[in-house]
C-alpha cells in the first residue's frame, strides 16, 4: 500500500469564546492509500467535518501530524479539493464561473479555464446550464456543480463531506453511480464522510468507524466486494452482511453517549 494520507494522533480542541472548550478529535490515526476510496462514518458531532477541514488545511490540529505524500499539510493546496455538504456555491456566480473558481485562483488564463470548466460541466451532466445561477438549479444540480468545481483543478485527493445528504433518494443513487465512474476513470484518492452505512459500504474500499466525540478511528472494515459495483449488488447477502458489521460497530457509539 502506497500511503497518500497519513494522520498520526491528530488532536484538536475548539476553544470558543465564553464557552467550554470542545475536544473534537483526540489522537485520531488513520492512513489512506493512493487511489483508495475511504469512507468515514460516525455519530453526529464526532469530528468528521473537523477532520476533513484539517485534511483540507483550513484547521490546524493542536497535536499530532498529518502528511500528504509524506509532506506535512500546512494549509490548503491544489492537490486537494472539497465537495461541501451545503454546496457552498457562490450565489453571484453562474455555474461556469463557480466551476472556474479553482483555476481562477490558480491564475490560469481565462480562455483555458473556460474550456476546461465547460468540459467538466458537460461531464457533470449540466450542459446547457453554464450561464444559470445557483438559485435556478435543483439540489442535485447544485451538488453536480460542487463536484465539477472540485474536479476542475484535477486534484489528487477529493474530500467529500456528506455530499449527497441533501438529495432525494433517486438523485442520490444516480450521483453515487456517477461518482464511482469518475473515480474509476480518474483514480483519485477519495475521503468520503457519510451518515449512510449503505452509501459507505457501496462506494468504499474501506469504511472507518469514528468513535463518539472526541473522535478516534475506532474500527476499520475492508469492503471486499468486486468492482465495478452496480446497484443490484446492494441486494446481495454479502452486502447486507457488511452493512450489519458496520452497524454493529457504529451502534455502540450511538447508545453509550
Amino acid at each position: 500500500m502506497v500511503p497518500c494520507i497519513q494522520a498520526r494522533d491528530i488532536s484538536l480542541t475548539f476553544k470558543p469564546k465564553n464557552r467550554d472548550p470542545v475536544t473534537a478529535l483526540k489522537e485520531l490515526t488513520l492512513d489512506v492509500a493512493k487511489g483508495e476510496f475511504v469512507s468515514l462514518v460516525g455519530p453526529s458531532g464526532c469530528g468528521k467535518s473537523t477532520f476533513l477541514n484539517v485534511l483540507l488545511g483550513l484547521l490546524k490540529p493542536d497535536g499530532g501530524e498529518i502528511r500528504l505524500n509524506g509532506k506535512q499539510i500546512t494549509g490548503p493546496g491544489q492537490e486537494r479539493a472539497m465537495v461541501f455538504q451545503e454546496f457552498g456555491l457562490l450565489p453571484w456566480r453562474t455555474v461556469l464561473a463557480n466551476v472556474e473558481l479553482g483555476l481562477e485562483l490558480k491564475g490560469v488564463q481565462a480562455s483555458v479555464r473556460r474550456e476546461r470548466a465547460m468540459e467538466l460541466i458537460k461531464m457533470a451532466g449540466l450542459a446547457g446550464f453554464a450561464s444559470h445561477y445557483p438559485h435556478e438549479l435543483s439540489g442535485g444540480m447544485k451538488q453536480r456543480v460542487g463536484l465539477a468545481r472540485a474536479l476542475v483543478t484535477d486534484p489528487e485527493v477529493l474530500l467529500m463531506d456528506e455530499p449527497f445528504a441533501a438529495l432525494d433518494a433517486q438523485t442520490r443513487d444516480l450521483m453515487q453511480l456517477e461518482l464511482l465512474q469518475i473515480w474509476d476513470r480518474t483514480k483519485k484518492t477519495v475521503v468520503f464522510v457519510t451518515h449512510s452505512i449503505e452509501e459507505a459500504a457501496y462506494l468504499s474500499d474501506r469504511v472507518i468507524v469514528i468513535s463518539a466525540r472526541p473522535g478516534r478511528a475506532k474500527d476499520v472494515m475492508k469492503i471486499a466486494l468486486p468492482r465495478p459495483r452496480d446497484y443490484e449488488m446492494r441486494l446481495s447477502a454479502e452486502f447486507n452482511d457488511i452493512k450489519a458489521r458496520i452497524w454493529a460497530s457504529l451502534k455502540e457509539e450511538l447508545v453509550t453517549k
Binding site: 490548503p76 491544489q78 479539493a81 457552498g88 457562490l90 473558481l101 479553482g102 485562483l105 490558480k106
Partner: peptide, 12 residues
C-alpha cells in the same frame, strides 16, 4: 463563513 472557507480551500 462557508463561502469564505470554499475560497480559502481553493487557495484564495
Amino acid at each position: 463563513p462557508l463561502l469564505i472557507n470554499v475560497v480559502r480551500s481553493f487557495g484564495g
